[in-house]
Protein backbone atom coordinates (compact mmCIF):
# COMPACT_ATOMS: atom_id res chain seq x y z
CA UNK A 1 0.00 0.00 0.00
CA UNK A 2 2.79 2.32 0.94
CA UNK A 3 4.61 1.51 -2.26
CA UNK A 4 1.54 2.25 -4.27
CA UNK A 5 1.06 5.56 -2.52
CA UNK A 6 4.67 6.52 -3.13
CA UNK A 7 4.38 5.76 -6.82
CA UNK A 8 1.23 7.83 -7.08
CA UNK A 9 2.88 10.78 -5.36
CA UNK A 10 5.89 10.48 -7.62
CA UNK A 11 3.72 10.63 -10.72
CA UNK A 12 1.89 13.67 -9.36
CA UNK A 13 5.15 15.47 -8.75
CA UNK A 14 6.40 14.75 -12.25
CA UNK A 15 3.10 15.99 -13.73
CA UNK A 16 3.38 19.26 -11.84
CA UNK A 17 6.91 19.84 -13.06
CA UNK A 18 5.91 19.21 -16.67
CA UNK A 19 2.94 21.60 -16.55
CA UNK A 20 5.04 24.39 -15.07
CA UNK A 21 7.54 23.91 -17.83
CA UNK A 22 4.79 24.14 -20.49
CA UNK A 23 3.26 27.28 -18.90
CA UNK A 24 6.63 28.99 -18.95
CA UNK A 25 7.01 28.08 -22.59
CA UNK A 26 3.54 29.46 -23.37
CA UNK A 27 4.38 32.72 -21.73
CA UNK A 28 7.55 32.95 -23.72
CA UNK A 29 5.58 32.38 -26.88
CA UNK A 30 3.03 35.11 -26.10
CA UNK A 31 5.38 37.92 -25.12
CA UNK A 32 7.37 39.63 -27.81
CA UNK A 33 11.01 40.13 -27.19
CA UNK A 34 11.90 43.67 -26.21
CA UNK A 35 13.70 44.16 -29.50
CA UNK A 36 10.69 43.04 -31.53
CA UNK A 37 8.28 45.18 -29.55
CA UNK A 38 10.42 48.26 -29.93
CA UNK A 39 10.80 47.60 -33.64
CA UNK A 40 7.03 47.30 -34.01
CA UNK A 41 6.45 50.50 -32.10
CA UNK A 42 9.01 52.29 -34.19
CA UNK A 43 7.35 51.00 -37.32
CA UNK A 44 3.96 52.28 -36.14
CA UNK A 45 5.41 55.66 -35.23
CA UNK A 46 7.19 55.90 -38.55
CA UNK A 47 3.96 55.17 -40.38
CA UNK A 48 2.16 57.88 -38.49
CA UNK A 49 4.96 60.33 -39.11
CA UNK A 50 4.91 59.52 -42.78
CA UNK A 51 1.18 60.17 -42.94
CA UNK A 52 1.50 63.58 -41.27
CA UNK A 53 4.50 64.51 -43.44
CA UNK A 54 2.25 64.76 -46.51
CA UNK A 55 1.71 68.41 -47.29
CA UNK A 56 -0.97 70.18 -49.29
CA UNK A 57 0.35 71.77 -52.48
CA UNK A 58 -1.37 74.83 -53.90
CA UNK A 59 -0.80 74.83 -57.65
CA UNK A 60 -1.56 78.27 -59.00
CA UNK A 61 -2.05 79.36 -62.58
CA UNK A 62 1.20 80.72 -63.86
CA UNK A 63 2.97 77.55 -62.79
CA UNK A 64 3.53 78.47 -59.12
CA UNK A 65 3.46 75.75 -56.47
CA UNK A 66 3.18 76.69 -52.80
CA UNK A 67 3.55 73.93 -50.22
CA UNK A 68 1.73 74.47 -46.93
CA UNK A 69 4.14 74.23 -44.01
CA UNK A 70 7.25 74.77 -46.11
CA UNK A 71 9.32 77.80 -47.05
CA UNK A 72 7.85 80.43 -49.35
CA UNK A 73 8.96 79.85 -52.97
CA UNK A 74 9.84 82.61 -55.41
CA UNK A 75 6.47 83.93 -56.63
CA UNK A 76 7.74 87.02 -58.35
CA UNK A 77 6.95 90.56 -57.29
CA UNK A 78 4.31 90.97 -54.64
CA UNK A 79 1.88 93.83 -54.54
CA UNK A 80 2.09 94.31 -50.80
CA UNK A 81 3.88 92.86 -47.78
CA UNK A 82 2.91 93.41 -44.14
CA UNK A 83 4.02 92.01 -40.80
CA UNK A 84 2.08 91.48 -37.57
CA UNK A 85 2.64 89.71 -34.24
CA UNK A 86 0.67 86.52 -33.71
CA UNK A 87 -1.67 85.80 -30.80
CA UNK A 88 -1.16 82.06 -30.97
CA UNK A 89 2.61 81.72 -31.18
CA UNK A 90 5.78 83.68 -30.59
CA UNK A 91 7.12 85.82 -33.40
CA UNK A 92 5.74 87.75 -36.37
CA UNK A 93 3.57 86.61 -39.24
CA UNK A 94 4.15 88.05 -42.70
CA UNK A 95 1.47 88.53 -45.34
CA UNK A 96 2.51 88.74 -49.01
CA UNK A 97 -0.19 89.96 -51.40
CA UNK A 98 0.05 89.01 -55.07
CA UNK A 99 -2.26 89.48 -58.03
CA UNK A 100 -5.31 87.51 -57.05
CA UNK A 101 -3.96 85.78 -53.92
CA UNK A 102 -2.02 86.25 -50.70
CA UNK A 103 0.42 84.06 -48.77
CA UNK A 104 1.01 84.23 -45.01
CA UNK A 105 4.17 82.85 -43.41
CA UNK A 106 4.65 82.11 -39.70
CA UNK A 107 7.75 81.25 -37.64
CA UNK A 108 8.02 77.55 -36.84
CA UNK A 109 9.99 78.04 -33.62
CA UNK A 110 13.14 76.69 -35.25
CA UNK A 111 14.14 79.91 -36.95
CA UNK A 112 12.21 79.24 -40.19
CA UNK A 113 9.28 81.10 -41.66
CA UNK A 114 6.97 78.64 -43.36
CA UNK A 115 3.79 79.10 -45.36
CA UNK A 116 0.85 78.97 -42.96
CA UNK A 117 -1.94 80.25 -45.25
CA UNK A 118 -2.77 80.80 -48.92
CA UNK A 119 -5.89 82.85 -49.74
CA UNK A 120 -7.48 83.27 -53.16
CA UNK A 121 -8.64 86.87 -53.51
CA UNK A 122 -9.98 87.00 -57.07
CA UNK A 123 -10.62 84.86 -60.14
CA UNK A 124 -7.52 86.20 -61.81
CA UNK A 125 -5.78 83.15 -60.43
CA UNK A 126 -6.77 79.46 -60.52
CA UNK A 127 -5.79 76.96 -57.84
CA UNK A 128 -5.25 73.35 -58.86
CA UNK A 129 -6.69 74.13 -62.32
CA UNK A 130 -10.32 74.53 -61.29
CA UNK A 131 -10.79 76.49 -58.05
CA UNK A 132 -11.12 80.26 -57.86
CA UNK A 133 -13.50 82.99 -56.71
CA UNK A 134 -16.91 82.63 -58.30
CA UNK A 135 -16.88 78.92 -59.17
CA UNK A 136 -19.75 76.77 -57.97
CA UNK A 137 -19.86 74.53 -54.92
CA UNK A 138 -20.04 71.55 -57.26
CA UNK A 139 -16.71 72.53 -58.79
CA UNK A 140 -15.15 72.56 -55.33
CA UNK A 141 -16.64 69.16 -54.47
CA UNK A 142 -15.44 67.73 -57.77
CA UNK A 143 -11.93 68.95 -57.00
CA UNK A 144 -11.73 68.15 -53.29
CA UNK A 145 -14.29 65.44 -52.74
CA UNK A 146 -17.29 64.82 -50.52
CA UNK A 147 -15.42 64.53 -47.23
CA UNK A 148 -16.16 67.97 -45.77
CA UNK A 149 -18.20 69.56 -43.00
CA UNK A 150 -20.48 72.53 -43.60
CA UNK A 151 -21.88 75.08 -41.15
CA UNK A 152 -23.14 78.63 -41.54
CA UNK A 153 -22.18 78.69 -45.22
CA UNK A 154 -18.60 77.53 -44.66
CA UNK A 155 -17.29 74.25 -46.13
CA UNK A 156 -14.29 72.87 -44.24
CA UNK A 157 -11.96 70.15 -45.50
CA UNK A 158 -9.13 68.57 -43.52
CA UNK A 159 -6.63 67.58 -46.20
CA UNK A 160 -3.17 66.28 -45.34
CA UNK A 161 -1.56 69.00 -43.17
CA UNK A 162 -4.03 71.72 -44.11
CA UNK A 163 -7.49 72.99 -43.38
CA UNK A 164 -9.33 74.24 -46.47
CA UNK A 165 -12.10 76.74 -45.75
CA UNK A 166 -14.52 77.60 -48.55
CA UNK A 167 -17.10 80.32 -47.97
CA UNK A 168 -20.08 80.34 -50.32
CA UNK A 169 -22.34 83.26 -51.20
CA UNK A 170 -26.12 83.06 -51.36
CA UNK A 171 -25.89 81.53 -54.85
CA UNK A 172 -23.58 78.77 -53.54
CA UNK A 173 -20.63 80.18 -55.45
CA UNK A 174 -17.20 80.51 -53.86
CA UNK A 175 -16.74 83.82 -52.13
CA UNK A 176 -13.59 82.98 -50.21
CA UNK A 177 -11.06 80.14 -50.54
CA UNK A 178 -8.33 79.71 -47.92
CA UNK A 179 -5.83 76.89 -47.37
CA UNK A 180 -4.24 77.10 -43.93
CA UNK A 181 -1.84 74.99 -41.93
CA UNK A 182 -3.94 72.77 -39.64
CA UNK A 183 -4.02 74.27 -36.13
Amino acid sequence: MKKILSIVLLFALVAMLISCGNTNNDKNDKVDSPDTTAANENADTTEKEEESNEAFVCKLSGGYEIVIGEALPDLGDYIDCSEAPSCIHEGMDRVYTYDGYSVTTSPDGKGNDNVSEVSILSDSVLMNDTITIGVSKDTVVSALGEDYTEAFGVMTYEVMNATVSVILDDASNVMSFVVALAQ
Binding site: S82, A84, S86, C87, I88, D93, V95, S102, T104, S106, E117, S119, A151, F152, V154, T163, S165, I167, M175, S176, V178, A180, Q183
Partner: peptide, 27 residues
Amino acid sequence: NFRYSTRTSYLMGNFVEGAYSGFTIRS
Protein backbone atom coordinates in the same frame (compact mmCIF):
# COMPACT_ATOMS: atom_id res chain seq x y z
CA ASN B 1 -16.71 79.09 -36.68
CA PHE B 2 -13.63 81.28 -36.87
CA ARG B 3 -10.07 80.52 -37.83
CA TYR B 4 -7.02 82.48 -36.67
CA SER B 5 -5.23 84.38 -39.46
CA THR B 6 -3.01 87.43 -39.52
CA ARG B 7 -3.85 88.19 -43.16
CA THR B 8 -6.20 91.01 -42.20
CA SER B 9 -4.02 92.41 -39.39
CA TYR B 10 -3.95 95.71 -41.22
CA LEU B 11 -7.55 96.20 -40.08
CA MET B 12 -6.48 96.46 -36.45
CA GLY B 13 -8.13 99.47 -34.84
CA ASN B 14 -10.79 99.71 -37.56
CA PHE B 15 -13.80 98.18 -35.83
CA VAL B 16 -16.30 98.31 -38.69
CA GLU B 17 -13.87 97.07 -41.35
CA GLY B 18 -12.53 94.43 -38.98
CA ALA B 19 -15.94 93.09 -38.00
CA TYR B 20 -17.10 93.09 -41.63
CA SER B 21 -13.99 91.21 -42.72
CA GLY B 22 -14.50 88.72 -39.90
CA PHE B 23 -18.15 88.07 -40.73
CA THR B 24 -17.28 87.74 -44.43
CA ILE B 25 -14.23 85.48 -44.39
CA ARG B 26 -14.64 83.98 -40.86
CA SER B 27 -11.00 84.49 -40.02
